[in-house]
């Protein structure tokens, strides 16, 4: 597999696509992220694992400022996002947020398709409303992306007519239509019926063959193994262990990681 670049192997002269430094996030008095450092090279695919409450979703959501970081730095292609306020928290103006989010796409656990728009309109919405693309061009592009996720024939349907797996594939097409440099997946298969998980994972694996930079929070360990170039294990708001899938998933060094993996494989037979 190409681009296997754990943090410390990243060429010294290469600017990381995404650089996170000392990222902290608190909700009230509850500190969920306690200082996260991460450099992501172009084309890296990072699977983020951890038990619930480890901060993995919050970490992902801080990257595109769905949650505002309480402290630390986030830089895209070497350019820092937001400015540090008096209390150390990062703030970003609306124009900056828009640029950030057109470059960093996100896929949610609950799909969150727009129910009042057809599948095609869902995918066109970002390019037309946010990027100002002419409708005809956006439509052609949206049809392409729907074809990519195998749903070209559903273009005129409304989301509620689609299965969960199909909805999530539309959501991926919607994110792709913005042509982002980085894709964030927040537990993309956690709310799907087991028999629908495969079709979504297939689409994500397809994207990984295109060399896209992706970060994925998941509980599907087997998928993480095949998908990722690097695996992070988060524990209590810190990166507890990281490395290649083989290192972290097959030969974890840390006790916590071992216990976590053991719990997840307890019912294998």
């Amino acid at each position: 597999m190409a681009n296997v670049l754990p943090a410390d192997v990243l060429p010294a002269d290469a600017t990381p696509v995404l650089a996170v430094e000392g990222l902290r996030k608190s909700f009230g008095t509850n500190e969920v992220l306690k200082g996260i450092d991460l450099k992501v090279g172009a084309g890296e695919r990072i699977a983020i694992l951890g038990s619930s409450g480890s901060g993995k979703s919050t970490f992902l959501r801080c990257i595109n400022f769905m949650e505002t970081p309480s402290a630390g730095r986030i830089a895209l292609d070497g350019t820092p996002i937001g400015t540090e306020g008096r209390n150390g928290a990062l703030t970003a103006k609306s124009g900056e947020l828009r640029r950030l989010r057109t470059r960093v796409g996100m896929i949610f656990q609950q799909f969150n398709l727009f129910p009042h728009m057809s599948v095609l309109e869902n995918v066109m919405e970002g390019p037309v409303t946010v990027k100002g693309l002419p409708k005809a061009e956006a439509r052609a592009k949206a049809q392409d992306y729907l074809k990519r996720v195998g749903l070209a024939e559903k273009a005129d349907q409304y989301p509620q007519r689609l299965s969960g797996g199909q909805q999530q594939r539309v959501a991926i097409a919607r994110a792709l239509a913005m042509e982002p440099e980085i894709l964030l997946f927040d537990e993309p298969t956690s709310s799907l019926d087991p028999e629908l998980v495969g079709e979504v994972l297939d689409v994500i694996l397809g994207l990984s063959r295109e060399g896209r930079t992706m970060l994925l929070v998941t509980h599907e360990l087997g998928f993480a193994y095949h998908f990722a170039t690097r695996v992070l294990f988060l524990h209590e708001g810190r990166i507890h262990e990281q490395g290649t899938p083989d290192e972290v998933l097959k030969n974890p060094r840390e006790e916590r990681t071992q216990a976590f993996l053991h719990r997840f494989s307890a019912f294998h037979f």
């Binding site: 595109n64 609306s94 947020l97 949610f108 398709l113 129910p115 409303t129 946010v130 990027k131 913005m178």
Partner: peptide, 27 residues
């Protein structure tokens, strides 16, 4: 309107006014 709708709009880069007009108010 569900929180997920607000987040989905923001995640594709919509500003507050666009989000209201295109996503929230119609629903």
């Amino acid at each position: 309107v569900e929180r997920g709708q607000w987040e989905a709009g923001r995640a594709i880069g919509m500003g507050h006014a666009q989000l209201m007009r295109r996503v929230i108010l119609p629903q």
